[in-house]
């Protein structure tokens, strides 16, 4: 299953990690094992309000199993946690580094993980 990584530009695997969740310009949807990915524009980036909700809904619709971002706001947090999609704080400078940390279960979770969240990581 894909996870989503927030990006501040679109340069494939060399893209820059974004420190924000809902207002970043791009999301990488990537299978952490096979590294097969697509990069899509964030439809919520310029929302006048409720960007966190819209971006989190997008994650739900894309059926991601996790989100890696520099930060996650409270409303996005509410929606993601209702959907039991775990969110993790990105680590290091590159996609490669943060993915490695994700696979090694070294990423810090943004909220108290529950059982479902853990099972999501193990998939």
């Amino acid at each position: 299953m894909n996870i989503a990584i927030t990006l501040s530009d679109n340069k494939g695997l060399d893209s820059t990690l974004s420190s924000v969740f809902a207002r970043c310009p791009f999301y990488m949807l990537i299978d952490p094992e096979t590294k097969i990915f697509t990069i899509e524009e964030n439809p919520a980036q310029n929302a006048s309000g409720g960007a966190g909700i819209k971006a989190a809904q997008w994650m739900i619709d894309k059926e991601v199993s996790g989100v890696i971002s520099g930060s996650v706001g409270p409303k996005a947090h509410d929606v993601l946690s209702s959907a039991k999609i775990p969110a993790f704080k990105s680590k290091g400078e590159s996609i490669e580094e943060t993915l490695k940390a994700y696979l090694g279960k070294e990423l810090e979770s943004f909220f108290e993980p529950n059982v479902d969240a853990h099972s999501g990581i193990q998939e």
Binding site: G49, I53, L80
Partner: peptide, 23 residues
């Protein structure tokens, strides 16, 4: 409802509708 909401005040997660009053 999520699609028609111009203000992103609604979301659907696991079959449950979430409503954000502030928005």
């Amino acid at each position: 409802c999520v699609d028609v909401c111009e203000y992103n005040a609604l979301a659907i997660a696991r079959g449950k509708t979430l409503f954000f009053k502030d928005l």
